[in-house]
Structures are given as structure tokens and as C-alpha cells.
Design a binder for these strands. Structure first.
Length: 292
DNA sequence: TGCAGTGTTGCTTC
DNA sequence: CGAAGCAACACTGC
């Protein structure tokens, strides 16, 4: 589900509400979400009593920094949601309290973990497909965590210029779309934004990286930041189930040009009809006329 | 009714 | 070794 703009939206939301709050209790409904430490008992022990300091994003990972040299890392994978709100246990089940947008949202029913905070509210992980991953790690050692250390540069970073882009992508081979989505080459781009970026840059998703001319690489580079920043501004793409930390939808889906547009006329008005091709278990959308 | 499709990632297989 | 396939899981939509 969430790619860079969606994760950024959630992180910004959490940064507004979490700092200063203490974790008083943790309910774990799906133990397999926890990747470190080994048991949910140890996980709870690591976190209960600690206070949130700040929230940050690294690639598609959410980092929640806590007191006591502790960091809580969350990767939402396909259907993970981090929601901040109020729930109560009734008949052994968590129920949303109040009229928040999360209340009746079918995508937000699947609570897997609930952190009860010192202000009486909760931070909840909802995750229908149970792929999301959660772990704790000593903050001072984050650089040793593979989830962090293997990541490529962040495309929203100021230092991510064309030189850097060429440096990380220039030596690669294979299909350009896969390269763009490889988190260890560039961090944060997934299936939606890869399709959108390549449509904008007039590059076929299956074009070989090693054959792309400098001009084409530049066109791709020039599409990356504007698309991601525009989507961050629109609070992400909710073409399906993405929700922010309050359970609200983003609106970048209104600006999508190719993703899920199969059969529609290309927005570049070149007479092309958007095609969808399956590859590696997922769909690529592109215009056969201008993306060669 | 049944099955293809879903925003991610990492392991297995050839 | 690199590329492709598939599994993790549960639901929606055709």
C-alpha cells in the first residue's frame, strides 16, 4: 500500500501527536508482526513506560524514536495502517470510540496491535493482510539494521541530484521499472509511482537501464521529485485502502495518469490507449505510443 | 461461484 | 549469479 508519499503523510501526522506521550500498555493480536525482539513479552518490556520523542521516515519505514535509546520501526507493507485515535475494549474486542473516520472504514477494522498512551488515546496497527512488520532496535545502533543500512538514497533529499541519481542507477542492468522500485538503489518508490514517473518521462517500463541515454535518465530524474512532492502535498494516493493516521484518505489518485487507467486515452493526447502488462506478479501501466 | 488482482518484500528455484 | 516465481494473507470485484 504505502509508498514514500503515503508513509510521509503518516509520519507527519504522528509527529504532530506522539511526542511527549508515554506508552502505558500494548495489546498484541498478531504476534507474527513482531520481528524483533523474539517474543511479544520482550517486545512489550522494551516499550512499556517509554516516551515518544519524534517520528521520522526512512524509505518506506516509519521510525518512532523513544526514550531509553529505543526505536520502534514499522513497515506497513501492503495493507498496514498506523492509526491514532480512541478505542475501548468491549466483550474482548477493540471498538472505536467516537465518530472518527476510522470508525466504519472497512479497511481499518483489522487491529493487530494497540499501544495505549498516557493521554488515554491509542496508536493502533491495522493490517488486513498481516504483512506489516514491527520491530524495536537500540536507536544508537540503527545504522546496523539491514532495513536501514541497505537502503539507497531518499529521492526527496536535497542531496539527491542528477549526479547522485546517475551514480546509483548508472551501473545497474535490467528493466528500468524494477530498478526504480529497488529499495536498495533508491528508497521509497513502489508500483504506483514507478508507473507514473515513467509515463511522465516517456520511458517504457521494460526499457533496459544499461541502454538508456543520458537524456532519458535525466527525464526520469526530472519526474521523480515533482511527482513525489505533489503526492505528499495531496497526502498520498488512496486509490484503494490507504488512510492517514486519522483514517482519512489522500487525494493524489485524482492526479494519476496511468496507474489503474487501463483502456483509457493517454493524458498526453497522443492517441495512445493505456495498456496493462503483468510482470513479476504485478501490473505495469503505460502508454504504448509515447513510452518506447 | 470462483478466481484474478492488490500498494511489498524476501525466499526459493532454475 | 541473475532473473523469475511464489509465498506470506485476506479481501474485493468481475
Amino acid at each position: 500500500m504505502p509508498e514514500l508519499p503515503e508513509v510521509q503523510t503518516v509520519v507527519s501526522d504522528l509527529q504532530k501527536v506522539l511526542p511527549g506521550k508515554k506508552i502505558e500498555d500494548i495489546w498484541v493480536g498478531w504476534k507474527k508482526s513482531i520481528k524483533h525482539p523474539k517474543t511479544s513479552e520482550l517486545f512489550k518490556k522494551q516499550l512499556i513506560g517509554k516516551k515518544f520523542l519524534s517520528a521520522a521516515r526512512v524509505g518506506k519505514n516509519i521510525l518512532l524514536y523513544l526514550s531509553g535509546n529505543t526505536t520502534l520501526l514499522i513497515h506497513q507493507k501492503m495493507t498496514g495502517h498506523m492509526l491514532y485515535g480512541k478505542w475501548k475494549v468491549k466483550n474482548g474486542k477493540w471498538n472505536a470510540v467516537g465518530a472518527g473516520p476510522h470508525r466504519d472504514d472497512p479497511y481499518n477494522r483489522f487491529l493487530r496491535m494497540v499501544f495505549s498512551l498516557s493521554n488515554g488515546k491509542q496508536l493502533a496497527l491495522c493490517d488486513m493482510r498481516k504483512f506489516a512488520k514491527v520491530l524495536t532496535w537500540p536507536t544508537s545502533d540503527l545504522g546496523k539494521l539491514p532495513d536501514i543500512k541497505d537502503l539507497g538514497p531518499d529521492p526527496t533529499n536535497k542531496e539527491f541530484d542528477f549526479k547522485k541519481f546517475k551514480e546509483v542507477i548508472g551501473s545497474k542492468r535490467g528493466k528500468i521499472k524494477q530498478t526504480l522500485m529497488d529499495q536498495n538503489i533508491i528508497a521509497g518508490i513502489g508500483n504506483i509511482y514507478a508507473d507514473e514517473i515513467l509515463w511522465q518521462a516517456d520511458v517504457h517500463p521494460f526499457a533496459r537501464v544499461e541502454k538508456l541515454k543520458d537524456k532519458k535518465l535525466k527525464d526520469i530524474f526530472k519526474a521523480v521529485k515533482p511527482i513525489l512532492t505533489k503526492s505528499i502535498k495531496m497526502r498520498g494516493t488512496s486509490s484503494s485502502d490507504f488512510r492517514d493516521a486519522s483514517g482519512n484518505k489522500g487525494s493524489f489518485q485524482k492526479y494519476l495518469k496511468v496507474y489503474k487507467k487501463e483502456g483509457e486515452e493517454c493524458a498526453k493526447k497522443d492517441g495512445g490507449i493505456i495498456k496493462r502488462v503483468k510482470f513479476g506478479g504485478r501490473s505495469s501501466h503505460f502508454c504504448p505510443v509515447h513510452q518506447k
